[in-house]
Write a protein that binds this DNA or RNA. Structure first.
Lengths: 73, 73
DNA sequence: CTGAAATGTAAAATATACTTGACATGAAGA
DNA sequence: TCTTCATGTCAAGTATATTTTACATTTCAG
């Protein structure tokens, strides 16, 4: 079901956002810190809901946080 | 974990895209028709991967397909 | 040096997305 | 009328995301 992989800029965004910590982000979006770590490190990709939640937490559009890596032709 | 709900324009996009059928969309993105039906009708929201897959199938940005309904303050 | 804060990791349990197979309906065309 | 196509739905199973608990490491202030 997956013809591409998904990358993210969470780490950069956290540091741009006043050095926000993983814990703080987790609380802000309502998940556990481990979930943030796993996603930030690319262990798996989040649900669409959580993806929107993270984008809202940073006040940026979703595609500024997550992006497709191998755009298939 | 969910402070908002997610809406989508799949149906509109399918009709704009040459009356694309649910079956066709499903094959194009590599899931079953039932999955498309469920998402189109809002029974649940897709994974981020599938969300990107659908956006790619229509050649539009993800946020043109899916959107947040209750932007929290 | 010591302790607290931030990060990374892992195993087991639960929740949710997705599949498979099957059936029902309405619309459209032969 | 009979058949086909597109759509909607349901139940049971598999896969993946998320939680919980727990521990290790590094960095930095005191």
């Amino acid at each position: 079901m997956a013809k591409f992989s998904i990358g993210n800029n969470i780490r950069k965004l956290r540091f741009n956002a006043n050095e926000m910590t993983q814990q703080e982000l987790a609380e802000k979006v309502g998940v556990t810190r481990q979930t943030i770590v796993a996603i930030e490190k690319g262990k798996y990709s989040p649900s669409l809901e959580l993806a929107f939640g993270i984008a809202l937490a940073f006040n940026v559009p979703l595609e500024e946080v997550f992006y497709v890596e191998n755009n298939p032709p």
